[in-house]
């Protein structure tokens, strides 16, 4: 029996990733905290270790007011830092 697919087509345009720097020495690190409990703590912990283990540079943090809405500061982050850590989960 033929049936019609209930999923429908997907709209998507794929983009390549930003080029990766070869190493993190002196690179400025951004943190986008999604405001979920402990997300900032995990990301800050990783950023500290990036400095200790890979010589990463200064850290700047942005915080979304709530995880339930898109961040409005993405352009500013892209202008301000070289690599970014962000998160999704509980």
């Amino acid at each position: 029996m033929d049936v019609l697919n209930p999923c429908g087509a997907q709209t998507r345009r794929f983009k390549p990733l930003a080029p990766r720097p070869g190493d993190l020495a002196g690179r400025s690190v951004g943190i986008l905290d999604n405001s979920k409990p402990n997300a900032g703590a995990l990301l800050a912990g990783v950023a500290e270790l990036l400095a200790a283990r890979a010589g990463a540079g200064s850290v700047r943090t942005w915080r979304k007011p709530t995880s339930a809405q898109p961040a409005e500061c993405l352009d500013e982050i892209a202008r301000s830092v070289e690599v970014v850590l962000t998160g999704s989960a509980d």
Binding site: L17, A18, P19, R20, P21, G30, L42, L43, V46, I77, A78, V81, E82, V83, V84, L85, T86, G87, S88, A89, D90
Partner: peptide, 19 residues
């Protein structure tokens, strides 16, 4: 600007779908 997403293993399928 190179980015990486951190998440918990329980949310991996959602994070992949979002990306």
């Amino acid at each position: 600007m190179a980015a990486v997403v951190l998440g918990t293993d329980e949310f991996a399928a959602l994070a992949r779908a979002e990306a």
